[in-house]
Nucleic acid binder design. Sequence first.
DNA 1: AATCCCATACCGAGTACTCGGTATTTTTTA
DNA 2: TAAAAAATACCGAGTACTCGGTATGGGATT
Lengths: 210, 210
Amino acid sequence: MVADDHTLFVDGLCGLLALQPDFDIIGKASNGKEVLHFLNSRLPEVLIMDLNMPILDGQITAEKIVGSFPSIKILVLSMYNAPSLSTRLKSIGIKGYLPKDTDADLLFSVIREISSGNYYFREKEKYIPGLNRFAETDAFLKKYNLTHREIEILKLISENLSSKQIASKLFISLFTVDTHRKNMIQKLKLSGKTDLIKFAIQNNLWQKQF
Amino acid sequence: MVADDHTLFVDGLCGLLALQPDFDIIGKASNGKEVLHFLNSRLPEVLIMDLNMPILDGQITAEKIVGSFPSIKILVLSMYNAPSLSTRLKSIGIKGYLPKDTDADLLFSVIREISSGNYYFREKEKYIPGLNRFAETDAFLKKYNLTHREIEILKLISENLSSKQIASKLFISLFTVDTHRKNMIQKLKLSGKTDLIKFAIQNNLWQKQF
DNA sequence: AATCCCATACCGAGTACTCGGTATTTTTTA
DNA sequence: TAAAAAATACCGAGTACTCGGTATGGGATT
């Protein structure tokens, strides 16, 4: 069974899974409520789901499933590539986690693993921040007319460091930090720190650590 | 051709498209750079892509494509269901836009539409904020021990209204707004406004308006 | 009727942020 | 080498936010 609010993703994934002779897709859902409703009539061996879903959140759904239908093995597919998610997912009772940029063959073998009773969490693969991020390329800097220093400071702002803390961390004056903030706000035509935070999040300069 | 950094999505979507007798998938890519590299050897009639991609952003990629390969029709698939995106995408030269929770049949017909030279932008469908959002259900409130009033104020905070502005909007005292802020911060174990903004974004209490 | 929860309101004192502007030095680019 | 860009630094004055605490009244629940 596959649950995700992105219909195209669900349909596409089901198509891929259906090509595997040992897989049988018994259901699809686009929110947590639909999942639970479906489970009242039929139980899959493996449930592949996203944690971000409307109407009933994936995490709460998973908790309910683990409590009521312990035979179901849950595999989470997430847009986040954060191995630190693993601890939290394990504590819920989820059997496996993969990011959505995983290739299909690995997905198939992981499904077989957890179907056999194993766990699949990639803890060995350390999260490497931003090496390939657009927001750190010259094209991005040029697009927004930002400097490397500005991006550096923006990242620290988005990590909730005060200007004073940033100044201390970078061995510069508080005035300098404030000037950089001001320059960014003007260049990006934003209004204050809230907009800066949003800009950082939307451009993947900040990613949640669980 | 399909471009998206979520490999499973690309593979699944290509599988769906391949079932249509009039579609021929000539390529896949997981970032903007790969797209441009591919176009040096072969041109698709329609390019289906996501705007959020690493290494080279989808928007810049699209702008380059429209400039260098005007015969290619670009259809954007986005996780955002925001019709207000349409104006911006049109100005870039993109021929169509659909959210990822679209069903496959509509996608197929839209591909055929823009392949024929038409545009597809759903402007009639007004964005309806939050009706089905998990973050506005009782389960969510219970999960985080938040009240309706707190969520209401959190939304306004995430829209960059100051406490003073919120007080004025809701006909309450500035002190009351501050108290709600304080209560939320304590309940959610956060540190200040930055964390509140992040919480709001991650729980879809705020969504970007273009 | 008593209790709890929520919304409202306030205090005091402090820090953080904003935004107009100025300036100098260092680094990069042409 | 000269010019431009980036980094650094500062001023003044004001608003916004934070966080410890206090309190009351109304509505819902037990």
